[in-house]
Design a protein around this nucleic acid. Structure first.
Length: 422
RNA sequence: GGAGAGGUGGCUGAGUGGUCGAAAGCGGCUUCCUGCUAAGAAGUUAUACGGUCAAAAGCUGUAUCGAGGGUUCGAAUCCCUCCCUCUCCGCCA
C-alpha cells in the first residue's frame, strides 16, 4: 500500500497521481478518517497514562484515599475502554480504505485510459510468412494436441485437455523455461498452490478482487491466480540482511482464475483458461536498484521468446491499464500469425514498496539502522499455454504439421515435428 | 479425525497478580587488555506509533509476552473463545 505518511503530507500529489488510473480512486475519506483516528488515539493515550499512574499510586495509598483513587481509576478505565472501541472501529475503517487504494503510477508511465493507449517500446524478430495461416484452435485438435470438448466435460468451459504431444510440449516448455531462468540466476522454488488470505492481501489481490479467484471456502484457502502470490509472500513478516539482496526466484505453478468479467472474450482456443500453467520470475531488491532490476527482468522474459524464435513486441502500459499493485509495467506481446495480431504473453511489473508494505517485507541495511521496506518485482517468464499456442501458429507448415523450435527439441525427447493425425 | 503438550525479545529459556518490556545464557555491537590466534574485562543490544527538537541524538508518552474478549485499581501470569506448532494414535499419496 501507499505510505500513509506520504498520503498525509503530500495528499495533492498522491491524489493527482491516482487520478491517472482508470477508476475513481481518492484519498479524501482516508485522510479524514486518519486525522480522526489520530485525534481519538491521542485522547485514549492520555487516559491510559493516567490509568498507569493510578495503578502505581494505589498500592501505597491507605484507607479512604485508596478508595478515592480506585474510584477514579474505574472511571478513567471505563472512558478509555470506550475510546478504545472507537479507535478500533476507526482503525478498521482506515485499514479497509488503505488496502483498497492502488499503487501510485510511476512518473515515467504514459497517460491513457486503457490498453489502447499503451505505447510500443520495441519489436523483435521477423513475423513468419505463412499463406493462409491457421489459428491454434484449428491446428491443435488436428494434431491431437488439444481436446476442448473433453475439457468441458471434465470441468466446465475454459478447461482443456492436453493430449499426447500437447501434454509433452507443455511439460517441455515448463522445464525449458525453468532451466533458462535458473541459468540466469533465479533460484527455483515450488510453492503451495493453495494460499491463505494473508498472502492474497500481501500481493494485492485482496480485498479488491475477491470474486476473481477460486476459493476453498471450508478451509479459507485460495487457489493461486499466479505464482507471484506464494513466491512474493515467501519472506512475509521477515527482515532480510541487505547482503542477501537481491533475491531472484523462478517458479512454475498452475494458476486459477475465474475470469469474471471476461465473458465472450477469447472463448475459442487456449488463450484464456480457468486453469493455466505459468513460469514466474520474482525479485526482491533494494529500493535504489528496482529500476535497473526491472529492465533486467524484462530482458530475462524477452530472452525466453527470443530463444524460442517467436516475434514479439514490448509495450509499456499506460496509467489507465496498470495493474492494482504495479507502479510500472511492461507487457510482452507475442505475434500470432493465425489471429494476425500481437497477444499478451508476459507482464513484468515493478511494485516499488507497495507489496512490501502489505506483506511486511523488510531488509536490514548494512550500515545498521532501522529495517526498511524492500522493493518487489515480477514477470511471467512465460505463460506456458499461450507459448504453446504461439508455437503452433508460428511454426505451422503448409502440410498442417508444426515444427518444434530448435531450443525445445532436447526437451521433447528429440521430436522435431508434430504431425497431423491421419 | 482422536489424545496430550506448548506458543515469551535475533536464538535458547526463566517468569503464576503490582517492584516485568520482561532474569539468565548464547549471539550481535562498542571500548579496553593481552603478541598470539582466540581468550578475558566492562558496557551496550526489541519493535511500532506519537510528543519535544531546525534535525539527529537524547528525553518522554502509548502499545506490544500467538490473536481477540473477560475478571481486577492493576494481567506474560487468572477465566473464555479462536488460531498456530509439536508429540503419539488413526487414515493416507
Amino acid at each position: 500500500m501507499i505510505d500513509l505518511k506520504l498520503i498525509r503530507e503530500k495528499t495533492d500529489e498522491v491524489e493527482k497521481a491516482l487520478k491517472r488510473r482508470n477508476g475513481n480512486f481518492s484519498t479524501k475519506e482516508l485522510v479524514e478518517v486518519d486525522s480522526e483516528q489520530r485525534r481519538i488515539q491521542g485522547e485514549w493515550e492520555a487516559l491510559r497514562q493516567r490509568s498507569n499512574q493510578l495503578k502505581d499510586l494505589i498500592p501505597a495509598a491507605q484507607g479512604e484515599e485508596r478508595e478515592t483513587l480506585k474510584a477514579e481509576a474505574k472511571d478513567v478505565n471505563a472512558r478509555a475502554k470506550d475510546l478504545n472501541a472507537q479507535k478500533n472501529e476507526l482503525d478498521e475503517k482506515l485499514k479497509a480504505l488503505h488496502f483498497a487504494l492502488p499503487n501510485v503510477p510511476d512518473a515515467s508511465v504514459p497517460d491513457g485510459p486503457d490498453e489502447t493507449a499503451n505505447v510500443e517500446v520495441h519489436t523483435w524478430g521477423e513475423k513468419p510468412k505463412i499463406d493462409n495461416p491457421k489459428e491454434h484452435w484449428e491446428l491443435g485438435p488436428a494434431l491431437g494436441v488439444f481436446d476442448f470438448e473433453r475439457g468441458v466435460k471434465l470441468a466446465e468451459s475454459r478447461f482443456t485437455v492436453l493430449m499426447e504431444m500437447g501434454a509433452k510440449m507443455e511439460r517441455a516448455l515448463m522445464n525449458f523455461m525453468l532451466d533458462l531462468h535458473s541459468k540466469r540466476g533465479y533460484k527455483e522454488v515450488f510453492p503451495p498452490i493453495l494460499v491463505n488470505k494473508e498472502c492474497m492481501y500481501g500481493t494485492g489481490q485482496l480485498p479488491k478482487f475477491e470474486g476473481d479467484f477460486y476459493k476453498c471456502a471450508d478451509d479459507e484457502l485460495y487457489l493461486v491466480p499466479t505464482a507471484e502470490v506464494p513466491v512474493t509472500n515467501l519472506y512475509r513478516d521477515e527482515v532480510i540482511d541487505e547482503s542477501n539482496l537481491p533475491i531472484y526466484h523462478c517458479a512454475y505453478t498452475p494458476n486459477f482464475r475465474r475470469e469474471a468479467g471476461s465473458a465472450g472474450k477469447d472463448t475459442r482456443g487456449y488463450i484464456r483458461q480457468h486453469q493455466f500453467n505459468k513460469v514466474e520470475i520474482v525479485k526482491f531488491c533494494l529500493p535504489e536498484n528496482s529500476e535497473d532490476e526491472h529492465e533486467k527482468l524484462v530482458r530475462d522474459a524477452e530472452t525466453v521468446l527470443e530463444t524460442l524464435g517467436l516475434a514479439y513486441r514490448r509495450v509499456i502500459l499506460c496509467a489507465g491499464d496498470l495493474g492494482f499493485s504495479a507502479k510500472k509495467c511492461f507487457d510482452l506481446e507475442v505475434w500470432f500469425p493465425g489471429q494476425n495480431k500481437y497477444r499478451e504473453i508476459s507482464s513484468c511489473s515493478n511494485f516499488g514498496d507497495f507489496q512490501a508494505r502489505r506483506a511486511n517485507l523488510r531488509y536490514r541495511p548494512n550500515e545498521e539502522g532501522k529495517a526498511r521496506y524492500m522493493h518487489t518485482l515480477n514477470g511471467s517468464g512465460l505463460a506456458i499455454g499461450r507459448t504453446l499456442a504461439a508455437i503452433l501458429e508460428n511454426y505451422q507448415q503448409p502440410d498442417g504439421s508444426v515444427k518444434v523450435p530448435d531450443a525445445l527439441v532436447p526437451y521433447m525427447n528429440g521430436v522435431t515435428v508434430l504431425k497431423p493425425k491421419a
